[in-house]
């Protein structure tokens, strides 16, 4: 029943893509790549539940869909709750003899709006109930689908249409929610952060998430050329850069306590300056004005501190 995860290129070639071409995602959006990599980690029959978001709106315009998997969309806030319902329904159907398959994996996917803010209660409930679900958040840093409004996943200093940068404000001033760690605090069996550039790392972690008993959470970083005002072709590089500057370090958390830094992040000798990341995107261009020099410095210090704390948690000196 269980298919191995496609970790070698040779095996990846054999895995069929789970999202067809010709969907409505923007050119250069990294979310379809994330879904593609997710498809390579699957181990058999899978049901996907999705919250409202770019990926849902753009890939499933009734009566068409680009998904080659059983796929369900309900409301913005309850993908995690629906996924729990799906698992329970499968159990009941199996008892009644209406379910022939041995095992089914249930995956819930949400954007950062649907995960950090709107659907957070449902996720917390899912984690508490301990349903065997993989929740993946593809984090593009704002409500990009409805017009780039700020979310809990927006970086400080990021300009959005509800956190304009100008004379009085440098964009969003608050910190980003440390979602992976909040989820881990539920004593979730497995939490990991990933990005689409490091594909092998992505597939390995997703597979671990599927195999673990109980809920698992994957936080995927997904560059958005439209909202970030970046070049469409740079999406994969931005994903890598975010890891190198320490904005989206790659790590795993087991059972909420055991931290493990992943290869790409562990191999970093030191973080690259945040300027390298900011100058690639139009949404950070105001930070290079002299009036925000102090703010910029404080953000750099914030990231450096977070990185040191994370290293300590992972046991790296």
């Amino acid at each position: 029943m269980t298919e191995p995860a496609a970790l070698k290129l040779k095996d990846m070639l054999k895995k069929p893509e789970i999202l067809t071409s010709g969907h409505r995602m923007c050119a250069g959006c990294a979310a379809p790549t994330i879904v593609k990599l997710m498809g390579m980690a699957l181990r058999g029959p899978t049901i996907v539940c999705e919250v409202t978001g770019c990926l849902e709106v753009a890939t499933t315009i009734y009566p068409y869909t680009a998904w080659k998997l059983p796929w369900i969309h309900v409301a913005f806030e309850n993908a995690a709750a629906v996924a729990s319902g799906v698992i329970e329904a499968v159990d009941v159907m199996r008892e009644k003899g209406r379910w022939s398959k041995e095992h089914v994996d249930v995956i819930a996917i949400g954007g950062d709006g649907g995960t950090f803010d709107i659907g957070f209660g449902a996720i917390s409930g899912m984690l508490e109930r301990g349903h065997d679900i993989v929740y993946m958040c593809y984090d593009n840093g704002a409500y990009q689908n409805t017009g780039i409004q700020r979310s809990g996943g927006t970086f400080p200093g990021q300009e959005t249409t509800t956190s304009w940068a100008g004379k009085v404000s440098p964009g969003k001033e608050q910190r980003k929610k440390p979602l992976a760690e909040i989820v881990a605090a539920h004593r979730t069996p497995y939490v990991a952060t990933v990005n689409p550039y490091h594909h092998r790392d992505f597939i390995t972690k997703f597979r671990k998430a599927l195999e673990v008993e109980g809920p698992a959470f994957i936080h995927a970083f997904s560059p958005c050329p439209r909202g970030w005002r970046s070049q469409t072709g740079k999406s994969m590089e931005l994903a890598k850069l975010a890891m190198e500057v320490g904005l989206h370090p790659l790590y795993e958390i087991f059972n909420g306590t055991e931290y493990k830094m992943s290869g790409p992040s562990r191999r970093l000798k030191e973080l690259r300056p945040l300027d390298d990341y900011w100058k690639t995107q139009g949404q950070f261009k105001h930070l290079f004005k002299p009036e925000w020099a102090d703010f910029k410095k404080s953000l750099q210090e914030q990231v450096n501190d977070d990185w040191e704390i994370l290293k300590k948690k992972c046991g790296i000196e």
Binding site: S21, G22, T60, P63, T65
Partner: peptide, 11 residues
């Protein structure tokens, strides 16, 4: 919905 290639036409 059934999965099709080109759900939005020729992109």
């Amino acid at each position: 919905s059934k999965p099709v290639i080109g759900a939005t036409g020729k992109t």
